[in-house]
Amino acid sequence: MAVETPAKPSLSDKLYDKMFHNYVWKSIFRTGYPNTPRNQMLIVATNVFLHLHPTRLHRTHVKVTHTYCLGGLSFFMFLGLTVTGILLMFYYVPSVERAYLDMQNIETTVQFGQLMRNMHRWMAHAMVILVFMHMMRVFYTGAYKPPREFNWVIGVILLVLTFLLSFTGYLLPWDQLAFWAITVGTNIAGAAPVLGPKSRFWLLGGFEVGPNALIRFYTLHVIGLPLLAAIFMAVHFWRIRRDGGLARPL
């Protein structure tokens, strides 16, 4: 009788072994390639980015129609805006003398500058819309109910921060659109009873939109508000996990 001999490893098996079972790969990714349930869970649990997720989650929540990925996409926009924003910072100086010229340079002489600027702009609009829609999905799925009350509050803060991020960025091109939009916008803020004029002065660093306003908006836009937003997002995501994942019917 023929004795069963184990099949010889095929070429692809060898390749697979070479790629994923070698010393270097294992030093970067502690787990093997995620093709077994064990490795799939390990990769989520041991990777700093993936471990925002649980290793397993309820079936209803992987349905696209449950979240439409809106929260995740809001976060993705935030990341994309960070990347394109950093690239734009290489070429942009927030001074009244240079800002507008730098914008023109970004559009005409910088490689892919126009593309970077367009991406940054459209992503910013997309983020405002996505965050609002995410809020609507959370509302209509009743996902703010206990124990997620406070995460809803954090969400409202994130909504305001998203508006503020977008608003502070609007001034930076220093063109007519930017200048007058911020003039109108800060006039709205200045109308507040009692504290309005003071807070407008504080925001603009003067009575009118000028050099001080530009540097303030720039600083808030590239570091102050993103930092705040990142902190609140971290709390937002942490709490989703602490509250037992996404809401589902009792």
Binding site: V96, Y100, M103, Q104, E107, Q114, R117, N118, H120, R121, W122, V128, F163, S166, F167, Y170, P173, W174, D175, Q176, L177, A178, F179, W180, A181, T183, V184, G185, I188, E208, V209, G210
Partner: peptide, 24 residues
Amino acid sequence: MNAPLLDQANADVTPNPSKAPWYL
């Protein structure tokens, strides 16, 4: 579609209408 860039900011020339960003 390119992001808009109008003339340089000029405090003496008020566009009519002047509008805040769309979400405001």
